[in-house]
Design a protein around this nucleic acid. Structure first.
Lengths: 139, 139
DNA sequence: CTTTGTGCAAACGATTTGCAGGATG
DNA sequence: CATCCTGCAAATCGTTTGCACAAAG
């Protein structure tokens, strides 16, 4: 998926978010990568060439983006919050060896039914987390 | 599942863990409840009547229990580590309204196959996280 | 008695907050 | 030009660590 600057700006505006360079940078970066970076990774990456955003601002940007549903938080490992601009339904694969996280297409996993979920629980959505070993970590 | 003091002691010994009152208390408490408490909840609960364990000790106990596989960490919500002495395979239900977490029997969910997992990924295990509303939070 | 665990307090790291100045619409 | 954002530094919160003493086997 390739995104153009203009689309990104329009998307932000459509959510009534002010388009600041920092916010744009955070969102564009998240759209461009697929490894669910942490705040620290974002911070390092964004400031690689030229300083663009402080940590606090990245946190604020992520929060704003999360509130309007453009970004989601991914919690798979202890003590690490990762962020994902892939909003569509998908599952996750976590390499237990190197910690890499990868999106898994929704269609790559059969649809799950909850046969005997206790009555009283109203399920709304679900997600499958698959753990295993990625190719780079295999013998 | 009702556990007797002796079983608990034997289980700990079988894992070569020294049986201290604090460790025993943490593990017995986790076995007795099913709400995946946080460290803070454990700390409060254990010291309700009589002070038994400091926070640091609870952390240490949980780590020891986790290393031998008697306890697992459950990560479903932001910034909260929960602990679970239910070691068997099971899924989780998370109430999006009140945050309650509930175990879901492995058999309550059909078995999941990964039809088109990218070649190169070797899946070892999986878990389904279901989000929705529990009965206490329904209108 | 040797080894390991406990508890306190200090240290730590990720995230949040207060606030003054700056940019956006 | 009113509103919202940024960046800095200080504050906060969960978790970890160092160390002296105590307990387990």
């Amino acid at each position: 998926m390739q995104w153009q600057a203009n689309e990104i700006v329009q998307t932000l505006k459509s959510k009534k978010l002010r388009v600041t360079p920092q916010r744009y940078a955070v969102y564009a970066n998240l759209l461009a990568r697929h490894d669910h970076p942490t705040v620290e990774q974002l911070h390092t990456d964004l400031n690689k060439e030229v300083p663009t955003s402080s940590q606090a601002t990245i946190y604020a940007a992520l929060q704003a983006l999360r509130e309007v549903g453009l970004v989601r938080e991914v919690l798979l490992e202890e003590g690490v919050s990762r962020y994902d601009a892939n909003i569509g339904l998908h599952h996750h694969f976590l390499c237990t060896h190197c910690g890499a996280i990868e999106d898994v297409d929704w269609e790559a996993v059969q649809r799950v039914d909850f046969n005997k979920l206790r009555t009283g629980l109203k399920a709304e959505k679900y997600e499958v987390t698959i753990k295993g070993v990625c190719d780079r970590c295999q013998p």
